[in-house]
């Protein structure tokens, strides 16, 4: 039986697909986008998360862990401010967890969305979950699209709706800012377009990185070439760095966070793509 680490459930997710949804966040991602706001979703291994608020600096965590934070520390904190970032679920266990709220989601025209991390980095687990939910609710996958062709096609069959990220079209820049090659991403995107499955394309507007005239033109053209008629633009979230300290890391993006995202919606319209800018600070 497959299992995966889930690092968060978001009940009442408003922006992860149609209707009222529960989003399930799978832990582990092959990409390392500099602007990632879910650092606890990046590593495949479990790790310790510490909430800073409420800490009385009693030292119980370090004492239990022998000078470091480990699983013993998690059990030692008198205020329970430490936890393991991920909890292991089998698909059946996950279905149990969701069963109670499925009728509420279905009544409200929603369903379940798998996000991450990168859900496609757990293709077997993801496929089994989607198959278990077939006929029970509407199933969406939010993805960077980074995975092998075969598992992608496999998952595609069991998914009702995709939220698909496009970040940078230039291969070198993509490699530099996300640590990964964008060839499989673009290939899978074409497969998705050809499949006829409903999806929405999402483009993060990272100041000076993805929101450049060149990149947005490239993306708009790519969408146009693939017959895509609309896209959602996500202005940079200045709170992106807020969770890094809780996993003991430092947020150090290689771009200027203080610059406001540029949406350049005209570019999209000139390619026949209707852009929708989601909530956040931006200029057009």
């Amino acid at each position: 039986m497959t299992a995966a680490l889930i690092f968060s459930f978001e009940e009442f997710a408003l922006h992860d697909g149609p209707g009222m949804r529960v989003t399930v966040f799978l832990k582990g991602c092959p990409l390392r986008c500099e602007w990632c706001h879910n650092p606890e979703g990046q590593r495949f291994e479990n790790e310790i998360i510490k909430s800073q608020a409420g800490c009385e600096n009693c030292g119980a965590c370090l004492k239990a862990g022998g000078g470091r934070l480990n699983e013993k520390s998690v059990r030692a904190c008198p205020n329970r401010l430490l936890r393991m970032s991920g909890e292991s679920y089998t698909p059946e266990h996950l279905l149990e967890r969701l069963r109670g709220v499925l009728p509420i989601l279905n009544d409200a025209g929603g369903g379940v969305t798998f996000s991450g991390g990168e859900p496609l980095a757990h293709p077997d687990f993801l496929y089994e979950c989607l198959a278990l939910l077939e006929g029970r609710t509407h199933r969406a996958v939010q993805t960077s699209g980074y995975c092998e062709e075969e598992p992608f096609r496999h998952v595609l069959d069991q998914t009702d709706f995709f939220l698909y990220d496009l970040k940078l079209l230039d291969p070198a820049l993509h490699k530099r800012y996300t640590g990964a090659d964008n060839t499989p991403i673009l290939r899978n995107f074409r497969i998705l377009c050809d499949s006829g499955k409903p999806f929405i394309t999402r483009i993060p507007l990272i100041p000076g990185v993805t929101d450049t005239e060149q990149n947005l033109t490239d993306i708009a053209r790519f969408l146009c070439d693939n017959g895509v008629k609309n896209a959602e633009l996500l202005p940079y979230n200045r709170l992106a760095g807020s969770k890094y300290a809780s996993v003991g890391r430092r947020y150090a993006p290689g771009f200027d966070e203080t610059v406001i995202s540029q949406a350049r919606t005209d570019i999209f319209r000139s390619f026949g793509v209707e852009p929708k800018v989601l909530w956040g600070d931006h200029v057009d």
Binding site: C58, A60, R75, A76, C77, P78, N79, R80
Partner: peptide, 14 residues
């Protein structure tokens, strides 16, 4: 009041 029983309080909170 859990003074000296931090681990037990942690367990109860879980």
């Amino acid at each position: 009041n859990f003074e000296g029983y931090g681990e037990l309080r942690n367990r109860l909170l879980s």
